[in-house]
């Protein structure tokens, strides 16, 4: 598999480290429901067919975390974005303080 890194161009899979599901957001540690929120955040994953949003870290390249949209059946990657940009949009869209 090859990933189109927005910084480095198309690179082979062995330059990257998988960092998990990009569709979960770290919950507020002080919310009354924190324990169950964190349980879901750490352990519960959907294993659906089709497109998954995944975090890949370009360890042997630019060190950027990437959000990769990959079809788990065909392995076709339809989108790659710099994770920091995605995360900033995520945080901007969320209520203040929800991720810290």
């Amino acid at each position: 598999m090859r990933i189109q890194c927005p910084c480095c161009g198309e690179r082979s899979l062995d330059e990257f480290t998988y960092y998990g599901d990009a569709s979960v957001t770290r919950p507020n540690a002080f919310a009354p429901t924190a324990m169950s929120d964190y349980h879901a955040y750490v352990y519960q994953r959907d294993n659906r067919d089709g497109d998954h949003r995944e975090l890949w870290y370009h360890a042997a390249g630019c060190h950027a975390c990437l959000v990769v949209t990959r079809n788990v059946r065909s392995h076709i990657i339809s989108d790659v974005r710099i994770a920091r940009e995605v995360a900033r949009e995520r945080d901007a869209a969320a209520l203040p303080g929800s991720t810290s």
Binding site: T17, A22, Y57, A59, A64, C65, R84, A87
Partner: peptide, 17 residues
């Protein structure tokens, strides 16, 4: 290596701002 990558992940993805 693992700890450094973990720190990068935290800085870029968990607390990007």
């Amino acid at each position: 290596v693992k700890a450094f990558q973990h720190m990068e992940f935290c800085a870029q993805w968990l607390w990007p701002s």
